[in-house]
Design a protein around this nucleic acid. Structure first.
Lengths: 189, 189
DNA sequence: AGGTACATGTAACATGTTACATGATTCC
DNA sequence: GGAATCATGTAACATGTTACATGTACCT
């Protein structure tokens, strides 16, 4: 149940139409919670039905014409509740680790190149985040007083650093592994 | 498309029934790709229909009676293809970061306790992984020659370390933030 | 009149979650 | 024969993805 709350947050920052929300999800919020315009329209409809948001009165309900939404008091209350609620941490869940596990059974052929490709991508993303950090959160700068936004950026940096470190280590040790550990086509012990 | 490949991997390691797979997903594979028994039964049905696995002949198709599956050559080929295929890295996607962002709008009340709770949970999980590392991958030990399994464990350790470090930093800096930045119930600038 | 950008939506499907239903086996 | 456990499955729903449909506004 995260998308509705992401939308409530974005609408509290500024009342918007579906397409405007989609654009904003492509930028800041989308760094850690992406959504397509189809998802957003569906969720806007539900939030309106349940009385957490409403369409601004001036917008006539004509297809193809902009329709802006704002958060109702019930929506703000719900967002406050969710922000402080107890939720279990998400366990790690990544197909790349699954592929490593599969490689232990069917062989590592081709996986090496994929790991190097991921390493390059994560290094590029890390550099991009660090550039934002230098630009917007340098010590003594203006935006320095936004601890929550900075915390989110540090999470992105920490996340990418983790992958870069792990991939670099793994690429080093992996080529020593056998390329095709088992050969029987269907009948492993 | 990860669950079918997780199942193929598990079945190549050892032909199993649905419930046996569920139990194995609660252990090793489930560390980074969990699945319920409903998901597994549904996916086993599809894999059988598409000819990637088959039920072992001795098992009569009676409800309530064990039914074991094994991987067919087409299934192994598919798993090999997927292991080496190009897939984009998963972007970070975590509700906790979303809640931080929401807190910037509706206030940080209650979030602090939740961050500390997560910190404790991640520390406990990290300790558990490090215990496994000491037990199974100590230098000069027997299981030392399993570089892929060790790489997966190191990913878990790196992941938990990232969260522990980030949460510890964030808990330090957060209390300085305002508890309720804006007060207007529905009409923020 | 046609093209492009803006804007809202439908439909179909894949994946994941939750609750429940049903049959077989074993132990008492 | 009743309870507990093993085992397979259905149903309903929530969320996320992909492809497509429709209408408006503006520019040429």
């Amino acid at each position: 149940m995260s998308l509705p709350h992401a939308i409530l947050t974005a609408l509290l920052e500024k009342p918007s139409s579906g397409l405007e929300l989609t654009r904003r999800f492509d930028k800041s919020i989308g760094f850690f919670w992406s959504a397509t315009h189809q998802q957003i329209y569906r969720e806007l409809g539900r939030l309106e039905t349940t009385g957490l948001i409403r369409a601004l009165p001036q917008a006539a309900p004509v297809r193809g014409q902009k329709k802006e939404y704002e958060v109702l008091p019930a929506g703000r209350t719900e967002l406050e509740r969710w922000t402080a609620a107890a939720e279990e941490p998400r366990p790690i869940r990544d197909p790349l680790l699954l592929r490593l596990r599969a490689a232990a059974v069917v062989g590592t052929a081709g996986l090496d190149a994929e790991l190097r490709r991921h390493l390059a991508l994560h290094r590029a993303q890390l550099a991009q985040y660090e550039e934002i950090e230098r630009r917007d959160f340098a010590p003594g700068e203006e935006g320095e007083g936004e601890p929550l936004q900075y915390a989110v950026l540090r999470a992105g940096i920490g996340w990418e650093s983790f992958w870069v470190r792990w991939l670099a280590e793994t690429v080093e040790t992996l080529p020593a592994a056998p390329a095709t550990p088992s050969e029987g086509p269907t009948d492993p012990a």
